[in-house]
Simulated assay, not measured.
Amino acid sequence: MPTIRDVARLAGVSIATVSNALSGGRHVSPQVREAVLAAVRELGYVPNRLARSLRNRRSQTIGLIVPDITNPFFSSLVKSIEQAARARGYQVLLCSSEEDALLEYDLALALISRQVDGMIVIPTQDAPRYLQRIGEKTPVVLLDRIGGEDGLDRVGVDNLQAARRGTEYLLSQGHRRILLLISTLELANIRERVEGYQAALEAAGIGFDERWVVPCGRGADTARVVEKAIQKYRPSAIFAATNRLSLVAVQAIRNLNLPFPERISLLGFDDFEWSTLLQPYLSTVRQPLEEMGQRAIQLLLERLEGVRSGPARVLLPCELAVRESVAPVALSMRRKEVRSKDNPGGSAKSAKP
């Protein structure tokens, strides 16, 4: 069985350098790290992580709980977190709560029992109390869904500004009848997106009407909910506040045989590889997934290393990815809007915005 001494001899470095290269401890240059890893692969060396964890009282593992691993947004975040953790010598234990608060609680306890050094959680609800109790002994970072104030570290995006910017873009294309699709109002990040949408409309002199904010839930009949909303309000544009709802909106538009984007435009929230697989290519508000994962790992390791004690709240900016799914509002639609203002008789055409 090869030893760490054998690896050091083959790589031409010290035993301490091998240890640092494998553990992510002190800084090791990329060239030296690659030489060590090449020697590890050639010799088939297996580090004794258990012995190392007993020495430094660290398991070199991080627990990660996401609401739904099948959601491309969360799986992309997982990838960024794993890459950032691996670069620092940590492994990630991944769990999916399936949007179930009780399952999330059980998974958190299971990760603690496996002696993870810390946890990153995308919670099913705002500010779960049990995480605050866990955070008193084991560092916890909340990611993406970061509502509440309870002393935990948080990394997310400025949802209000992101939604406002997205709505302003639709307004700049002449759209005034903008339907906002949301999953639920129970999460702070979604409520903030509604606030951003409202702020943009009001700044443009367009009255906000809560009926144009459509909670779609997460059920199998979501597409039908969207279809009914389109038929009722006849929007010229849809702003889908989550990536899943972007796909649902595309399905609803196709089911109704509406010219897309000539008759109805669509702006999504979140950005993934499949955004350019759809026809037309999907315009979106893009979240900085890689930076979100990196900052979450950074905050967690700062806690572990005792760099700071007070809670940190990191809000990252989003950017607009303009592609093909948003078109300038058709002249015929503008004429209809003018007529609807002249004849507010309670029909779908008279609805706000």
Rank of each mutant, 00 (worst) to 15 (best):
M1A: 03
M1Y: 01
T3M: 06
D6R: 07
D6P: 09
D6S: 10
R9E: 14
R9W: 03
G12A: 08
A16V: 06
A16Q: 06
S23Q: 11
S23M: 09
L37M: 14
L37K: 10
A39E: 03
L43R: 06
L43F: 09
G44C: 13
Y45H: 12
N48Q: 08
R52A: 14
R57H: 12
R58C: 07
T61G: 10
G63D: 07
G63E: 05
D68Q: 00
P72K: 00
S75I: 00
S76A: 13
V78H: 02
S80H: 06
I81N: 03
I81D: 02
I81W: 05
E82L: 13
E82S: 15
A85S: 07
R86D: 14
A87L: 13
Y90E: 04
Y90D: 04
V92G: 02
L93V: 13
L94D: 05
L94E: 07
E98D: 08
E98M: 03
L102G: 01
A110M: 13
I112C: 15
R114V: 11
R114G: 08
G118M: 08
V140P: 05
V140L: 11
L142M: 09
G148Q: 06
E149R: 14
E149Y: 14
D150N: 11
D150I: 03
D150L: 05
G151K: 12
V155D: 00
L160K: 12
A163T: 10
R165V: 04
E168Y: 02
R176L: 09
R176S: 06
L181M: 11
S183H: 09
N189E: 15
I190F: 13
R191D: 11
V194K: 03
V194N: 03
G196H: 10
A199L: 06
L201N: 05
G205T: 07
P215W: 04
R218A: 01
R218P: 00
A220M: 04
A223I: 11
R224H: 09
P235M: 03
S236M: 06
I238M: 10
A240Q: 11
A241S: 14
T242S: 15
R244Y: 11
L245F: 12
S246D: 07
S246C: 12
V248I: 14
V250W: 11
V250P: 07
N257R: 15
P259W: 09
P261F: 12
E262A: 14
I264L: 14
S265K: 13
L266N: 07
D270V: 11
D270L: 12
W274C: 15
L277V: 12
Q279C: 11
P280T: 08
R286E: 13
R286A: 15
E290H: 08
E290N: 08
M292L: 14
M292G: 01
M292V: 06
G293A: 05
E305G: 10
V307A: 15
V307R: 15
V307H: 15
P311H: 11
P311G: 10
V314C: 01
L316P: 02
L320D: 00
A321E: 05
K341D: 01
A348W: 13
